[in-house]
Design a binder for these strands. Structure first.
Lengths: 109, 109
DNA sequence: CAGTTAATTAACATTTATGTTAATTATTGG
DNA sequence: CCAATAATTAACATAAATGTTAATTAACTG
């Protein structure tokens, strides 16, 4: 499995995507806090975190008995880079939309 | 399942990601051509195409007995928009890299 | 209109993913 | 050191994904 596909797979689950969003917003959080919001047991969340870790999307820092998690910018940039490198393609429809808007502006009413 | 998660799930498979890349590069292709490259049977590819269709990542056009597939820019923009709207976050490490480079430039040798 | 081609859908087997409870590991604090 | 806390790993059950072959649908072609 390539790193990109592993990243897509990691984000293809509502619990994991939610964890990533939470970490991007709140910064570093202990596993326990993520369990509270996830609506499932700690072992389940722990394994979701493992999937995210193995995809390089989150980092783990140990502080006593707690594991502090944070989103990893480098991992997330893999997705961004893929999207941006295909920008020429997905902007096609936007170009058409812009053209339509401009055409309308040039011919008011 | 949200559209974004459905998109991530659709791209989280090597066969499907490969199909998307092929369609972005070559434009419209019949299902048969995609089967040739996929290294698996036609029914398997057909179902992969269904997953991509349901995620809005490809479009299907009927031409006689053939189904012509093309990548859908609107679907792909969903991923781009997500990545770009989180740009402030994933650029963090890039900023640090830039800072390091600039610092080096300011202090040559 | 029978036969061929293109593709999908159905039925099935197998692997992978995901959740639960129970057990384990590791650290903190009396 | 023992009990409590935080988190993970193990074992297990079940649902979902993915591939195969067989059957079906639809459109050309002689």
């Amino acid at each position: 499995m390539t790193p990109l596909i592993r990243s897509f797979a990691a984000l293809a689950d509502p619990t994991r995507l939610n964890i990533i969003e939470q970490l991007m917003q709140s910064g570093e959080l202990p596993a326990g806090d993520l369990v509270k919001d996830a609506g499932m047991t700690a072992p389940a969340v722990s394994r979701h975190l493992k999937v995210l870790r193995e995809a390089g999307l989150v980092r783990q820092r140990i502080d006593g008995t707690r594991r502090l998690y944070s989103a990893n910018p480098d991992g997330l940039r893999l997705i961004s880079d893929w999207a941006i490198s295909r920008r020429a393609f997905w902007e096609q429809s936007l170009d058409r939309l812009e053209t339509a808007i401009l055409t309308e502006e040039r011919r008011p009413q």
